[in-house]
Design a protein around this nucleic acid. Sequence first.
RNA 1: GCCGACGUAGCUCAGCUGGUAGAGCAGGGCACUUGUAAUGCCCAGGUCGUCCGUUCGAAUCGGAUCGUCGGCUCCA
Length: 664
Amino acid sequence: MSDEITLTLPDGSEKRVAAGTTPLQVAEQIGPRLAQAAVAAKLNGAVIGLGTPLQQGGEFSILTFKDPEGRDVYWHSAAHVMADAVVRLFPQAKPTIGPAIEEGFYYDFHMDRPFTDDDLARIEAEMQRIVAADEPFTCAYLSAAEARRRYEALGNEYKTELVADIVALENGLEPPRGREAIERFEAEHEREYEQVRVSIYDHGQFSDLCRGPHIPSTGRLKAFKLTSTSGAYWRGSEMNPMLQRIYGIAYPDQKLLDEYLERLEQARQRDHRKLGRELDLFSFHEEAGAGLPYYHPKGAMLRYLVTEFATREHLKRGYQLLRTPHLIKSDIWYISGHAQQGYPMYYTEIEGQSYGIKPMNCPGHILIYKTHKRSYRELPLRYFELGTVYRHERSGVLHGLLRVRGFTQDDAHIFCTPGQLNAEIIGVIDFADFMLRTFGFEHFQVYLSTRPEKSVGSDEQWEMATNALISALNEKGLEFDIDEGGGAFYGPKIDVKVRDAIGRMWQCATIQCDFTQPERFDVTYVGEDGQEHRPVMIHRVVLAGIERFLGIMIENYGGAFPVWLAPVQARVLPITDKQLDYAAEVTRTLRDAGFRVELDESSSTLGAKIRDAELQKLPYSLIVGAKEAEAGTVAVRHREQGDLGPVPLADFMARLAEENAPGK
RNA sequence: GCCGACGUAGCUCAGCUGGUAGAGCAGGGCACUUGUAAUGCCCAGGUCGUCCGUUCGAAUCGGAUCGUCGGCUCCA
C-alpha cells in the first residue's frame, strides 16, 4: 500500500523497500552482522542516521566504523556521551562544541576551573554508566527561536552564538561576532529565527544542538578512553575566552583501542627527542636559550651528510652556491615588505643603525642578482644557499628539532622569465620528488595554497602565478588539494607533505611564486629586444628547515639510519685485548677507505659490546677474535639480520661500499 | 603568548600528610680475557631548575622566573 523506493547499493545491486523504511531495517535485511556493525547510512552522498525513515531512493550505503564518515559519526556520538557525563558531574559546565577529529574527538566546555586527571577518571566512569544504560539517540527539530530561548534559559551564550550562525548561514547573512552584534542580530532577525529549523539530538537526559547524525544508541560505544585535557580558545582565537577541552578516543572493539594505544607507544619510542638523547645526536640547553639546538658529533655528522648530499644535488641541477650574512640593515626588510609582516623578529643596533637578524634569505639573493645587469641569456638563474635564519616562535609551540627558533633552510631563489616559469616549477617538483624519495619517503600529498587576506600584489599577478602552479601540477599529473587563502603574502605556493613510517604527515618542500619582490627591489633583465623586463622569482625549499627535516628523518627511520646516513657505519669489537692491534688495523683500513668506523676498546664481554652496538642502532658490528686476526677476516653482525659469519675484510668493504649509496 | 602538568645524580625514576636525599643504568678503579643483546666487586657523583617568601625547620607549602611536556577553529 505504501510507495516503494529503489536503493542502489555499493555493489551495484538494487533493492526495493517501502518508503519510510529505516536504514537500520535495510541493514537487517542485508545481514545481521551488517546491522550490528552499522553506525550510520549514506543516501545520495548525505550521511543520515540509521533511524531516519527513507523517503526517496538513490545511491545508498550502510556506514560502519570502517568508513571515514561512519567513524566520524561514532566519535561524534562519543563526544555527546562525554558531554553528558561532564554535565552530570559538573552542572556548572557549559557545553560548547564537540566534533570528531582525525583520531577521536574532543568537547570544549566553559568551566570555572580546569579538569584534572581525577576528573577524567570520574567522567570515564560516568560514561560507562551512560553506555551501559544503552540510551537511544533521538532527533528533534526546533525553530531557531525556540532553541535560542532554551540556551538563553541555560545561560549558554556559546550555543546561542551557534544558533545565530545557523540562522545567518541559512539566510546567506554574515554571522555576527561579539555579544553586541549577536544581540542586535537576534533582534533584527526575529522572523528568520522563527523560520529556520535546527536539529537537537537527545540521549537520556542529555540534549545538544547538533547537525547529527548519531549512532542508534549509547550502547554501541564499546571501548573508549579520555586521553588528555587542555585549554582551548573559543573558536580558536586568543581574543575569546578560554574553554576547557577534553580529548578522547573510542572504538567498537577493545582490540582496536589497544592497537591505538600501541601505536601511541610506538610513536613515543621513535620520538626524535628521545632518540636524540639516546643516540647522542643533539641537545638543548636551558641556560643557553629555548629552541636553539646543539649538535653533538654524531648529530652534526648526520646533518653534514644530509646537507652535503643536498648541496651536491643542487649543483648537479644548475644551482649556484651563495652565502649571505646573518645580519642585515633593517631598511631592507621595509623594501621587501617583510617588516610589514612582522619580520625580522630579532633586532640589534650597530653604530646607531638598526639591523635585523635575517628571518629569510630572499633579499640577500636579490642583492647579489642586482650586482650587475642581467641578460635573458643568464636566465634561469638558480641561487642556492644553506641559509640560517632566526624566527621568534612562541614559547608554547617549540618542539624538539621540529619547531625551533634558529634553523637552516635548503633555500633557493630562481630568477626566470615568465615563459620559463612552467619548466622551472616542474623542475623543482621533480627535484623534490627525487630528494624526498632518496631519504626514504614514498608517499606524498600535494597542496596548492591560494591568496591570503593579508597580501600584496595585483589580482592579475596572483592569477598568473596561481595558474602557473596549477598547470605545472597538471602537467606532472599530480593530484592536489587546494588550501584556500593559505598562500604566502607575496604569492601562491605548492606544498608537499610526506608520510612517515607510522602514517603521520609532515610538511617539507614548498614552491612559491613571487611577482612582487622583483618589483619592490626593481629587479630586471635585458631581453632579446634590448628592453628591460621584470623576471619572475621562485622561492623554494625541498627539505625546508634542516633541523626539522632531521627530526622527521630520525623518527621515520626510528634512529636506525641506512648505511649512507649512519653517523657510525660500523664498530669493531675485539673479543679480547689480544685482538686490539688487529682491531685497530681493521678500523684504520676502513677509515682510510672513507668509512665511518669506531673501535670498542672497553674491557667488557663480547655480549655487552654487542648489546651496546645494537642499542646505538649501528648498521654493522665487526667481531674480531683470534680466528679472524689469524685469517684476516671480520665476523660481520648486521643490526637486524644478526650474525652473518666471517668474511675477508675486503669483502665486507665491498659490501659496505655498495650500501653506502644515497637512497640505498 | 594563553591553559594545564612537570623539573630530584649524565640517563630512567623512588622519595606518604614539611624534619636537610635513594636505586638501576651510565662514569672511574680493580679483577676477569670473554665468540653474537648486560661479568663481578669497589668508588665517586646531587646547594632536589633558579630566585623570593611561609616555617624552629622546605626536595616536600606559596609566589615569581627559566625550561620541558600536552593542547590552543579538523567548527551545531
